[in-house]
Design a protein around this nucleic acid. Sequence first.
DNA 1: AGTTTGCTCAACCATGCGGTTGAATATAGT
DNA 2: ACTATATTCAACCGCATGGTTGAGCAAACT
Lengths: 122, 122
Amino acid sequence: MVEQTSPQLDAIFHALGDATRRHMLRELARGERTVGQLAEPFAMSLAAASKHVRTLENAGLIRREIRGRTHLCRLEPGPLASANAWLAFYERFWTQHLDALEHALRTEGAHPSKPSRKGDDP
Amino acid sequence: MVEQTSPQLDAIFHALGDATRRHMLRELARGERTVGQLAEPFAMSLAAASKHVRTLENAGLIRREIRGRTHLCRLEPGPLASANAWLAFYERFWTQHLDALEHALRTEGAHPSKPSRKGDDP
DNA sequence: AGTTTGCTCAACCATGCGGTTGAATATAGT
DNA sequence: ACTATATTCAACCGCATGGTTGAGCAAACT
């Protein structure tokens, strides 16, 4: 079931709403990384990057394994799947959009039938 | 090409990171709605709701047609498709995750081969 | 033992966000 | 013309966010 009022989704989408964090996720998609490794590409202090990592962790998007003095992070795909599930609800809209476009291009202004009134108030 | 450092994605995901706005999108998925209609379900001022609508509009998630004194909003699926495209990159992670789980459940601890080391540093 | 390394914590700062209220604007109805 | 309706605008408030710096702490190296 796709929950609507969900603090989980709030945290997930909020975490994704920052390019730095999206970049970190992309990096983690390539394998495990330490906090330092994740921070390295960015022109910000380690502390700042560490906060981003924490945000990702709080959203459940990554897991952290403390190995001695280094913190090893790995991607946790579950929440991304949740976000994807939420978005999937709208999938028919953009596919439909593309379908309509394709149809319009294909028929080139032939038989102008009903202008596709689909689902207003039932 | 799935852009990483994108103010567009920033805006889209940020807009999605709020339950009120997600609710509005769900409502708009059912058909066109005025700002007032969108605001009605929420226990907040109209001005506050109006700001949410503006946020959605700025993210490109909705379009607004001003009809006399009412503003009619409709869903714009493109940006949702972008967000979906961004997430799609990670799809293999959660499907793989589920596959691994399924596999583990199916084989019940048989032939412990390589523990699935996939793509660390090349 | 002493130092360096990896990371967090705490305090601080500027900015932005989500909310409020009250006024402004423009259209619609009488 | 007057009033009611639909919506935005502007100023304000409290709080979270994203960044900084400096200190703190535990593990690793020599």
